[in-house]
Amino acid sequence: MKTFEYITPETIDEALELLGEGAQILAGGTDLLGEMKRGLATPKRLINLKGIQGLADIRSIPDGFLTIGSLATLSHLAEHPLVAQHYPLLIEALQRTASPQIRNIATVGGNLCQRPRCWYYRHSAFPCIRKHGEGCFAMGGQDRYHAIFGGHRCFIVHPSDLAPALMALDAEVRIAHADDSRIVPLTDFFVGPRDSLTQENILTRQEILTAIRIPVPPDNAYGTYLKVSERKATDFALASVAVSIAWLDTQVTHARVVLGGVAPVPWRVKQVEEMLIGDELSGKRIERACERAVDDATPLRHNRYKVALVKGLLRKALHAAHRSREKGEK
């Protein structure tokens, strides 16, 4: 690891001033330190945000949003009473994230900003395009963990469990900049390889992600996060699905379906959401939704199984939603 200057600002403004060429933000550090140990990240300056008051707070605010400071740890979020009350889907996602030890350090902001886990990207022997190198080694190589959607010259998958879950809850992120701050829907936060081959989100070098806001879910909403991984713990998703559904009587009035582990960004399948709204969740409709979800899948040589996984997971999630509504009726 190359040495660096380590700074602990006490306010966001101080932190923003410290940003610049060679500077990197340290939050939980569970991803960044790994990248530094591997020589993938070589910051000259490390700006630790932990000293900034309030940045780790989780609050419900009068306008109906839950606001999560970007420095809140994953375990803090998972244990928060408001989360248990309104967003059980988040708890399902958090329980499947990394390990208990990592969840006690890793932050919500860091989780959304984590770098790809692609083994070519992480490996020193492969100078891939995401490291300003020469191409994608997964193409024609060992691609079983790679993207079946949205790949383009690069086939990473977004590794987060939390991101699809937050996206299914219509979360927004607050981004601080020296001049002004902005609030962006999480859907617009992530950046695929068509837009950038070197970064995975819209943050510029002058910006800091400070908070995540989640609206109160609609009435009668049901949410679930399902994940398949090879190991039952401390493993990234081969595929995952976050679903949030609401009803009026038997009619679906609101639907969010977001896939994880299958695309360079958390993959929202709007065409499925649209076809679910306005109708009952019948078995037939669920089957059609599953087919529809993988309509535009373009699997690589060894990851066709992910197509089947997405269908299987979505089927399970929608059936669970349907059962929960029926239970609610009784």
Binding site: T30, K37, I102
Partner: peptide
Amino acid sequence: DMGECGACTVLMDGKPINSCMLL
């Protein structure tokens, strides 16, 4: 040394963490 095995677990303010993943 990468936060993957848990052998370096210590308690920080009562919670288990990987001591290899914190400066």
